[in-house]
Simulated assay, not measured.
Amino acid sequence: MTLYFSTKKIPQLQHLTLPQRLEALQIAERKLTGPEKLLLNILKLLVVIPVFVLIIQISTNWMAIFWALLVTLLYPLIIKPVHHGLCVKYIPNTHRQGD
């Protein structure tokens, strides 16, 4: 699976405008299989749960807020490439500007 950090980098979507790319990605997301959706949701949980654990630790360690913010900022850097990589196989190669 290739990881794409931007929808501009997906070969099937390079010639489309941003709204068209997002629409094509949304259509492809609906076609994800159950195990793919499960994998994506588990990955999201693995990123989100530490944030809440760190927030709970703020009462004893005020530096935990910085770690929680760091993990929160890393969320799109971890989730979006995997999301795009899973969806790319459901994007048809025949998207054209007028569609």
Results as ranks from 00 to 15, higher is better:
residue 69 L to A: 15
residue 48 V to Y: 13
residue 41 N to M: 05
residue 93 N to V: 02
residue 27 I to E: 04
residue 98 G to M: 11
residue 40 L to V: 00
residue 59 S to F: 15
residue 44 K to W: 00
residue 77 L to N: 09
residue 13 L to E: 00
residue 98 G to W: 13
residue 90 Y to G: 03
residue 69 L to V: 12
residue 21 R to T: 06
residue 41 N to P: 02
residue 84 H to G: 02
residue 24 A to T: 06
residue 43 L to Y: 04
residue 76 P to V: 08
residue 89 K to G: 01
residue 66 F to G: 15
residue 33 T to V: 00
residue 28 A to G: 05
residue 67 W to V: 07
residue 57 Q to M: 15
residue 19 P to Y: 04
residue 17 T to D: 07
residue 23 E to T: 12
residue 30 R to L: 10
residue 88 V to E: 09
residue 87 C to K: 02
residue 83 H to R: 03
residue 74 L to S: 05
residue 52 F to R: 05
residue 99 D to C: 01
residue 50 P to H: 12
residue 66 F to P: 10
residue 86 L to H: 08
residue 48 V to I: 15
residue 1 M to E: 03
residue 99 D to T: 10
residue 95 H to I: 10
residue 40 L to A: 00
residue 43 L to W: 11
residue 49 I to T: 15
residue 9 K to E: 15
residue 22 L to E: 06
residue 84 H to V: 07
residue 40 L to W: 02
residue 9 K to V: 10
residue 66 F to I: 14
residue 91 I to C: 01
residue 52 F to T: 13
residue 58 I to P: 11
residue 50 P to W: 13
residue 25 L to N: 03
residue 73 L to W: 14
residue 93 N to H: 02
residue 18 L to Y: 10
residue 15 H to E: 13
residue 71 V to Q: 03
residue 62 W to K: 14
residue 6 S to M: 12
residue 71 V to N: 05
residue 13 L to R: 08
residue 51 V to C: 07
residue 54 L to P: 05
residue 22 L to Q: 11
residue 21 R to W: 07
residue 5 F to N: 13
residue 99 D to A: 04
residue 81 P to M: 11
residue 64 A to F: 07
residue 32 L to I: 03
residue 5 F to A: 12
residue 94 T to V: 06
residue 35 P to W: 11
residue 82 V to L: 10
residue 41 N to V: 03
residue 89 K to Y: 00
residue 68 A to K: 08
residue 63 M to L: 15
residue 60 T to S: 15
residue 60 T to G: 15
residue 37 K to M: 08
residue 26 Q to K: 14
residue 29 E to Y: 08
residue 27 I to Q: 08
residue 19 P to T: 09
residue 1 M to W: 02
residue 51 V to H: 07
residue 73 L to V: 12
residue 31 K to T: 00
residue 66 F to H: 05
residue 42 I to Y: 07
residue 67 W to M: 10
residue 59 S to I: 14
residue 68 A to N: 12
residue 13 L to Q: 00
residue 49 I to R: 01
residue 6 S to K: 15
residue 32 L to S: 07
residue 58 I to M: 13
residue 48 V to S: 01
residue 82 V to C: 03
residue 45 L to G: 13
residue 65 I to P: 09
residue 77 L to C: 06
residue 10 I to N: 09
residue 72 T to I: 09
residue 56 I to V: 09
residue 65 I to A: 14
residue 38 L to V: 05
residue 32 L to M: 10
residue 97 Q to C: 04
residue 28 A to C: 02
residue 49 I to D: 02
residue 96 R to W: 01
residue 63 M to E: 14
residue 63 M to H: 14
residue 10 I to Q: 08
residue 16 L to S: 06
residue 19 P to K: 08
residue 17 T to Y: 04
residue 16 L to Q: 09
residue 56 I to A: 09
residue 7 T to M: 12
residue 58 I to Q: 12
residue 91 I to Y: 04
residue 38 L to C: 04
residue 86 L to T: 03
residue 57 Q to H: 11
residue 31 K to A: 11
residue 85 G to L: 03
residue 46 L to F: 14
